[in-house]
Amino acid sequence: MIYIGVTGWGDHYSLYSPQMKAGDKLKEYGSHFPVVEVDASFYAVQPLRNATKWVRETPENFRFVVKAYQGMTGHQRGDIPFETKEEMFTAFKESLKAYQDAGKLAMVLFQFPPWFDCRKANVNYLRYCKKMMGDTPVALEFRNQTWFSSAFRERTLSFMKEEGWIHAVCDEPQAGDGSVPIVPEATDSNMTLVRMHGRNVHGWTKPNSGDTNWREVRYLYQYNREELLEWKERIWKLAKSSKDVIVLFNNNSGGDAAGNAKDFQELLGIEYEGLAPRQLGLF
C-alpha cells in the first residue's frame, strides 16, 4: 500500500478551520491522510500519555512514523538529560509502547545530521542503534552525500539491507556535502520511506541569522506537476520492491506540504478508506 501524508499535524493550516483548537487538529488530520510523522519526539522523549492520546484520536488503520530523539542521532550539542546512551534508548523505546500496542507504529526514523559522514566509527554507531532498537522497524536517512558517493553507494545500500534498515529515500536540494541525491532503492521488502523536503537550495544552505528563522526558509518550496510526475514513476517502482511505501511531504515553510500531498494522491489515483469523519465547518 502507498501511504501519503505530511510531517507533523499542527502547522498545516489549509486543513483546518481558523477556529480549530490545537488539541483537535490530529483528529481532523486523520480525515485527510492515513499517516503522519511525529516530530515532537525529536526534541524530547515524549511522555507515554502523549502517544496514548494520539493513538486514541486516530482511526484504526492510521500509522505513525516517529522521529528518533536528537540525542540518539547526534544533533543535540548541549547536555542530554540521560546519564548513559543505554538509558536514553530505553526511555525512547518505552515511549513507543502505545503506538506498538495499537498496531499503529510504522517505523522510527533515524535522521542523521550533515556532519555524520561515511566512516568506520559512524558505521559502527549505526550497528549500535540497530541493536538497541531490537525488533522495532527503523528507517535511516542520511544528510551527508558521502554515503551515496560512487565509492560507497552500493556498499551503503548493501549494509542497510544486511542490518535491517528501512531506506528513507529523499528529495532535497542538491547543495553539496550536506545533502544526498535521490536514490530510489528499497532496502526492506516490507517498507520504504520517502521524504519530500523541497528543492530550495538557498534556504537549505542559509545559516541562522539574527532576523531570519532558518526553519522558515529551509523548506520553502512548492512542487510543480512535472516534479510530482517524476516521483509517480519512482513510487510505483518502489512499490514493487516493498509491501508498503510511505511518502511524507516536509516542504511546509510556506504551507505547501498538505496541498502537494493531496496533489500527489490525486496523481496516483489513490482514494483512502477508513479515514476519520471530517468535521463540518459550519460556524
Rank of each mutant, 00 (worst) to 15 (best):
G274W: 04
P184A: 07
V180R: 07
F64N: 02
H75M: 01
G269E: 11
L157P: 07
A22K: 09
N252H: 06
W214A: 10
A257R: 00
P113A: 04
E172V: 05
R63C: 06
N50Q: 14
D171C: 08
A98W: 03
M196F: 06
K21Y: 10
I246T: 08
Q19S: 10
A261G: 09
F62Q: 02
E172T: 01
W165K: 10
G203C: 07
Q46D: 04
P113T: 06
N190P: 12
N251T: 11
A68R: 02
V66A: 05
Q174R: 13
A102M: 15
G198N: 03
M196P: 00
L15K: 01
E172N: 03
P47D: 04
A102S: 14
E60K: 07
L280A: 15
E172H: 04
L220F: 10
Y272T: 09
A121H: 09
E28H: 03
K104H: 13
P173V: 12
M1W: 14
M1L: 12
Y219S: 02
T146A: 03
Y128H: 11
S189Q: 11
C170R: 03
D11S: 13
T84K: 05
P18M: 08
Y99T: 13
E230V: 15
W165F: 12
Y219M: 00
S31T: 12
E37D: 07
V169F: 05
G203D: 01
F62C: 08
H32F: 11
K93L: 08
E83K: 09
K232E: 14
G78A: 06
P184I: 08
E87M: 11
S253C: 01
G255I: 02
I182R: 00
G259C: 12
M72V: 05
D188Q: 06
V180W: 00
R77V: 10
K85G: 14
L282M: 14
L220G: 10
Q19R: 13
E216H: 05
I270W: 06
L48P: 06
K104W: 13
E162D: 14
H32C: 12
R77K: 13
V201D: 00
E154R: 10
E154L: 15
H197I: 03
I182F: 09
G198V: 03
F116M: 08
G10M: 14
D79Y: 12
T192M: 05
S179W: 05
A139K: 02
G198H: 00
M1A: 05
C118F: 05
G134A: 08
E94Q: 15
G74C: 02
S179N: 04
T73C: 02
W9E: 04
G8L: 09
I182W: 08
E216M: 02
L248I: 15
Q222D: 12
F249A: 06
A22R: 00
E86L: 07
H75I: 01
I2M: 04
E273N: 13
W231M: 08
